[in-house]
Design a protein around this nucleic acid. Structure first.
Lengths: 353, 353
DNA sequence: GCTCACTATGCATGCGCATGCACTGCTGTG
DNA sequence: CACAGCAGTGCATGCGCATGCATAGTGAGC
């Protein structure tokens, strides 16, 4: 049997049910005017014929595809996998689906945008990738809302939702200071990304307030990968002629975990005894026994909810929201890679949720 | 400005370029008869108008959406994330996109199928989820090829690509035997899934050949999660009145890593000195220093390639391939959680690729 | 019993593009 | 020089459905 064989249409169903094609259409359109009796006649016929409405065809008239594009640049980082999962779950609950566009981490996503425009998606979420402002207006002009997730483009009218990374970086710095650290180091991915940038800024800023003028900042080439951070850590501690850092901030959990592995298994140092480590994201892997990483939790659920709210998928007549910036506070999760100062002990949190 | 504002159509472009709408269509259709001069006139006009072909509309006539549905049940397992990534990358190279359908691990994906049928996808890949045979024929009847990835439904005419899990399980058993293990245990997820089933079968089968009649099999409730395996390991070694196992097979890397964490950090045992551990999948996380997991590598690239080959997306007139079963051999990767017997030392492999 | 208001339904049309067919004009061949 | 052959183009149509509009049917109110 060749493909495209039997795909019954609303006309087939109409014929079998003894009604008009419009009736079939209405039977499958919630909130449309149709008698219960007619609807069930239609549904019966549809069942017999294995009819499923062709949403491609309906998109042509409604101008809604119920598809949301998700541009994702770093599936190696479980944090973004979690983000993807959360979007997919929440959108499915609304009867929408995620169309994935994978791009090289930190590369331009302009090409992805050109492709997704073809698919007439209802909205775009961009995570972990760069984007030119021209593309933003291309989307806006065509009435497609786009939200940057955990990044922003200063001075553009693109809307975005992000963790308050400056405040988050400061939380780690504060934890280090409270735990009595003296010499600070930081490992980050590409500083072109606003995410890393802000975390570094928040961290260094808080240190300055604490009277620390100097800290070692290592920018890993490429994106924020485990391997990059591992090698950077080894290098950092091998080349060291000056005093060894006693506090290391990995700008995300993956990098912090890589640093811990390098410290323990390559450099023979103990965490947190010889050196404390802080991370960022709170990925499930960091909660595991070998790590028990102290980190800043990004409230993914809330961030996704805010993103969907800005996208306004339910009401395409609304003007596209421009220039919205929703920084959401993260929360410090005390575990075992930073010694908990007595003053903080009450809110140590090791929960899984 | 309201949405849906300016979305120019092929007619607009045609008008500006001074040609007919058909010419515009042809200008964007590779391999279609059009003079170079006309094409560039059209492309110029299109550029001016920010025209992008509406692939939804074209799908209506061509009956091709260039969308492939991927049903995925377990994004917590990096293996499947890698699978997703590979599919997305390879499909994008062909000008196609992945539409994601996330389902609960090991739950029915029948509902997902009903939804994806609406989107008129060109093909379906199903990973890590159950499926009724009724849904298979529903897809087949409508001319939509579906390939089961790493699972199969015995006796159905669904096609599938999978790692040869029986042979893979046997590889681990063989490694254990060669390393001199005497008492065997195995931790697995839901045995309803053919993947776990086969790995267990291969493992136990090979042990029998080696004269081992008995091994401890622990089936973790729910899906193959880290947490489940961790708790199961603790329980297994605490409740033990008999001789302690000296070889533990985690039916996938995540579970093996969970077991290692439990053994080391909860039970105070050393791996591989007190007890050797084998995994399955070869996820990047298992290569890291704290684990260096000996495991069976699933050749993802090849499996994805075979899947795409079976889907035959380029040639929708071909009959749908039915009942194909492509078991692909995995390869044992020697690392450090099973002591390498002298006879095997030559092929120890620690490469990252 | 008659009209009004409203519900339920059908008819006709258009969404944006691909494509079969007809037509034009041009090149090459005998 | 005549005509076949073909590349290039436009016209018309249909893909499957949603929806505005017209109409038939129903019940309520006087």
């Amino acid at each position: 049997m060749a493909r495209k064989s039997s795909r019954s249409t609303s006309f087939d169903v109409a014929a079998l049910a003894g009604v008009s094609q419009s009736a079939v259409s209405r039977a499958f359109t919630p909130g449309s005017r149709i008698a219960d009796e007619t609807r069930s006649k239609v549904l019966d016929a549809a069942l017999k014929l294995n009819y499923v409405p062709n949403s491609i065809a309906s998109s042509l008239t409604t101008k809604r595809t119920n598809i949301v594009a998700l541009i994702i640049g770093n599936l190696d980082n479980p944090f973004y996998v979690h983000v993807l999962h959360t979007f997919s779950r929440k959108l499915q609950e609304q009867g929408r689906q995620v169309l994935i566009f994978t791009v090289e981490p930190n590369s331009e996503s302009d090409e992805a945008i050109m492709h997704l425009l073809k698919y007439q998606v209802d909205g775009v979420v961009l995570t972990a990738a760069q984007l030119s402002t021209r593309m933003i207006s291309l989307c806006h002009d065509r009435g497609i809302p786009i939200v940057l997730f955990n990044r922003y483009i200063p001075g553009s009218d693109a809307s975005g939702v992000r963790c308050d990374n400056v405040a988050g970086g400061a939380l780690i710095a504060e934890a280090f200071l409270a735990a009595g650290a003296k010499n600070f180091a930081l490992i980050t991915g590409d500083l072109k990304g606003t995410t890393s940038q802000d975390r570094v800024r928040g961290f260094v800023g808080r240190l300055l307030e604490g009277g620390i003028k100097r800290s070692e900042i290592v920018e890993v080439e490429g994106h924020s990968s485990y391997e990059g951070a591992f090698n950077a850590t080894v290098k950092l501690f091998r080349d060291q002629n000056r005093t060894r850092p006693d506090a290391l901030f990995g700008v995300n959990d993956i990098m912090a975990m890589a640093a811990i592995d390098a410290l323990r298994h390559r450099l023979g140092l103990r965490v947190p005894e010889d050196l404390m480590v802080g991370g960022f994201d709170d990925i499930p892997e960091g909660r595991r026994l070998p790590y028990q990483l102290t980190t800043v939790r990004q409230p993914i659920e809330q961030m996704v909810d805010e993103t969907l709210e800005i996208l306004h998928l339910d009401d395409p007549t609304e003007p596209i929201p421009r220039g919205i910036d929703r920084p959401i506070k993260g929360r410090l999760i005390w575990r075992n890679t930073i010694p908990v100062p007595a003053a903080y002990r009450w809110d140590k949190d090791d929960s899984q949720s």
